[in-house]
Simulated scan of single mutants.
Amino acid sequence: MTHEREITEPVDLCLPGGRLNPEAVGWTRRPLHRANLRGWGRGKRWEYWGLVTPTHIVGLVASSLDYAGVHGLYVLDRASGQERSADAVVPLAAGTRFPDRSGAGEVAVRGGGLAIGIRQDANGTAIRAKAPGIELSAEVPLPAGHESLGVVVPWSATRFQYTVKDVGRPVHGVLRLDGVEHALDGFAVLDHGRGRWPYSVTWNWAAGAGDGVAVQLGGKWTDGTGSTENAVFVGGRLHKIGAELTWEYSRRDWLRPWRIHGEGVEVDFTPFHEKVARTDLGIVASETHQCFGTFSGRFRAEGGWVELDGLTGWAEEARNRW
């Protein structure tokens, strides 16, 4: 299903001078890259965690864009459709801390009344976040044998991205909204990113999980690079998809059904809620439409077709000038 090279040993993302290490280009089943980025101005570092439970969806992002830290905490009440959020933009990304390896070390950011802390080790991840009226305490254990998708996307020797997409991890914890406690029992999705990006980029991303199956699909930003971030996980085992996929959706009505398809992939996505996020700082701007919903369809694995019906998650389009 894939032409890409699987990397099985630890590797540095960059050469000593800061350019992309050719030996880092490929994909992994567990985090093996050290993001030894150098220089300032085009570097991007982030951790995004999405938590999905029967009652709530939580999204939190800690990021450094070199010239700014852009952090956020978002909560959706699935029954009422009520959204709550807290966002912060910190000049020069002051006070941010990011490790150079996924799954190890600590992430810490704060600003504008928002604080996020993430501790990672071989056993899993602990997430703490606090904003006015919102407090999150969650544990995301790492099951034995669980695999994630790591991919290096090479636009050029000076523009490249390392991403880890870890989908379908169990999550347990407590969400407090204005002092009222809500139990968190569901699944979690990680988007770990380290790289040096072009100024203008558009991407699609879809992720969902349920009943021992998880799906991770991406598009647009990887087109033409020779790398993809497409995979299906069955029982925690990664099945890599090397084909570029076609995404069909309406930019006029984001809640219309989406279709994602290609070699061995037939996926339909039916949204039930749209989250819109916009940032406009002049020459720096972003617009994201993230739709939460359910998946149906199938994926062709080595042993035959795997049904994807009943998965819950999201599909999104993000446009960035950064």
Rank of each mutant, 00 (worst) to 15 (best):
V11T: 13
V107C: 03
P91L: 09
V140R: 07
G210N: 08
V52E: 13
P143G: 03
L175N: 00
A62N: 07
R300D: 09
R29E: 07
A243S: 15
V267P: 10
V167C: 12
W305V: 09
A79M: 13
L13R: 06
I134N: 08
H172N: 09
H33C: 05
T158M: 10
E83Q: 15
S227F: 03
R34Q: 11
P16F: 08
V11C: 11
R101I: 00
A138L: 15
G179E: 10
W247K: 02
R169T: 03
S250L: 10
T228N: 09
G112F: 10
M1H: 15
W46K: 01
I241Q: 15
A68K: 12
D100K: 05
G50K: 07
H192G: 00
V164L: 14
T202F: 08
P22S: 10
W197T: 05
V151F: 03
A318R: 04
R101V: 08
A157G: 10
A183M: 05
G303D: 13
A183W: 08
D211V: 02
E302Y: 00
G105D: 07
F295R: 03
T246A: 14
Q120N: 11
W197A: 01
V75G: 00
A318Y: 06
A207M: 12
T202P: 04
F187L: 08
L32V: 03
E263A: 11
H3V: 09
V189H: 15
P31F: 03
V89F: 09
S286P: 02
G18D: 03
E139F: 03
S80K: 10
Q82Y: 01
W203T: 01
G133V: 11
A231D: 06
D211L: 10
A24N: 06
P91F: 07
E316Q: 05
I116D: 04
V151K: 06
A183S: 10
A144H: 11
R256D: 15
L308S: 02
Y67W: 14
F269P: 00
Y249W: 14
A285Y: 15
E147W: 02
T158A: 10
L114K: 04
W155A: 07
T312F: 13
E307M: 05
P132H: 09
E139G: 13
G219H: 01
G26D: 05
R252S: 13
G95N: 13
G173P: 01
A207W: 02
T312A: 14
N123K: 12
L13G: 06
S286I: 02
A35W: 01
L177T: 12
T312K: 12
V58G: 02
H239Q: 09
W221L: 02
G72S: 12
R119E: 15
H71V: 05
H146S: 10
S63N: 06
I116P: 04
A138V: 14
A207G: 12
R256T: 13
G112A: 06
A122C: 10
G18K: 05
T312E: 12
E317A: 10
V174L: 12
S250V: 00
V267L: 07
A188W: 04
P132A: 10
D12C: 11
H33G: 02
A243N: 03
R319I: 12
T158D: 13
V164W: 02
R29K: 15
G282I: 08
R101D: 04
R97V: 00
F295I: 00
V153Q: 07
V164T: 02
L149E: 06
R278I: 12
V89M: 06
N21E: 11
A88T: 10
